[in-house]
C-alpha cells in the first residue's frame, strides 16, 4: 500500500470522525431536556468534532504553515467555546432556568 493511499485513508477517517461528533453535538441539542444539558453536548462534542476535522485537514495539508494555522484556529475556537459556554450557562441561570 502506498504512502499516499494511507494518507487519503487517514484524511477520510479523521474528517469522518469529526462529522460524527458534530452530528452528536447537534443531536444532543435537539434531544437533551434543558439549556444546561444541551450546552454540555454542544461544547464538548463540537470541540472534539473540530479537533478531528482539524487533524484530518492537517494530514492533508501541503505546508507546515497550514498545519500551524489549523492548530491555532482550533485552539482559538476552544478558548471561545469554553468562554461562551460559561456566559450562556450564566445567563440561563440568572433567568431562572435552573
Amino acid at each position: 500500500m502506498s504512502v499516499e493511499l494511507l494518507r487519503q485513508i487517514a484524511v477520510y477517517a479523521l474528517t469522518g470522525a469529526g462529522l460524527v461528533f458534530f452530528l452528536a453535538g447537534t443531536l444532543g441539542v435537539v434531544r437533551f431536556p434543558d439549556t444546561f444539558s444541551r450546552l454540555h453536548a454542544l461544547t464538548k462534542a463540537d470541540n472534539l468534532g473540530l479537533g478531528f476535522l482539524t487533524l484530518g485537514l492537517a494530514v492533508n495539508a501541503e505546508r507546515w504553515a497550514d498545519v500551524a494555522k489549523l492548530a491555532l484556529i482550533w485552539a482559538l475556537v476552544l478558548l471561545a467555546a469554553g468562554t461562551v459556554a460559561q456566559l450562556v450557562a450564566r445567563s440561563a441561570l440568572v433567568r431562572g432556568e435552573r
Binding site: 464538548k44 470541540n47 459556554a85 460559561q86
Partner: peptide, 15 residues
C-alpha cells in the same frame, strides 16, 4: 477553570 471544565467530562461552569 470554568472554560476548561466546560470541555471536561460531564461538567459545565456557570460563573
Amino acid at each position: 477553570l470554568g472554560g476548561e471544565l466546560s470541555l471536561m467530562p460531564g461538567t459545565l461552569a456557570a460563573g
